[in-house]
Write a protein that binds this DNA or RNA. Structure first.
Lengths: 109, 109
DNA sequence: GCGGAACTTAACTGATAGGTTAAATATCTC
DNA sequence: GAGATATTTAACCTATCAGTTAAGTTCCGC
């Protein structure tokens, strides 16, 4: 079972999906609305949306025929947290991380 | 040509590669050293390393037969920046992002 | 209840990812 | 220069991805 971190980063690796997220940052949108800027078929966008949903980055409602998408910021937290953790050490003293990891070793990963 | 953001996120989507990065945060390491914790062949690890390198997340030196890997924190900046930008808005007022995007529209994306 | 709009599912395709084993390439050591 | 060590390349396999078109499904409006 792949971790959600796998899914989140994989979802973010595609420019179409990042564009969809950017669009959703402006507010909820239907699939057709989200598909509009792209030169690909609706099913293709529908698949991208499913990937984002599986990663927990968006969730969907029901409004008649529409399945409005909205952002789920929580999923980003994990990813941002991972990056922030490593950036903190990479940018600064690596010895600090080594020490930190040694301390953690007793408590488990 | 895929953006580096594509490559960085795609590289981070694999747990083996994240583990390699975590290991490198403790300091430089050779391919064999990096491969040691994993139950996969050396060529497989070599490929993972190549993916990380192409993403700009690591760089490599030459020390006799060894090709030591070290972190390149710069590549993380772009990814962390992307996440931070959206998290800022997603967590807070979405109106702010809408306003921001409208302002940017004149200057271009 | 029919027509149409909004999606989704199914079936297919070509490309890429992630792994394997076996062979090739460098470089040190003796 | 022969042998050992470190790493890469090549050739291959299977699974997943990103896209397609065509055929459902669901729900509104009349």
């Amino acid at each position: 079972m792949p971790s959600t971190l796998d899914h989140v980063f994989a979802a973010l690796a595609d420019p179409t999906r990042r564009a969809i997220l950017a669009r959703l940052a402006e507010g909820e949108a239907s699939v057709t609305e989200l598909a509009e800027p792209f030169e690909m078929s609706l099913p293709a966008v529908s698949k991208h949306i499913k990937v984002l949903e599986r990663a927990g980055l968006i969730s969907r409602g029901r409004d008649a025929q529409f399945r409005p998408c909205r952002l789920e910021p929580e999923a980003l937290k994990e990813a941002a947290g991972w990056l922030a953790f490593y950036r903190r050490f990479w940018g600064g003293s690596l010895d600090r991380l080594a020490a930190y990891l040694e301390d953690e070793e007793e408590a488990g990963p």
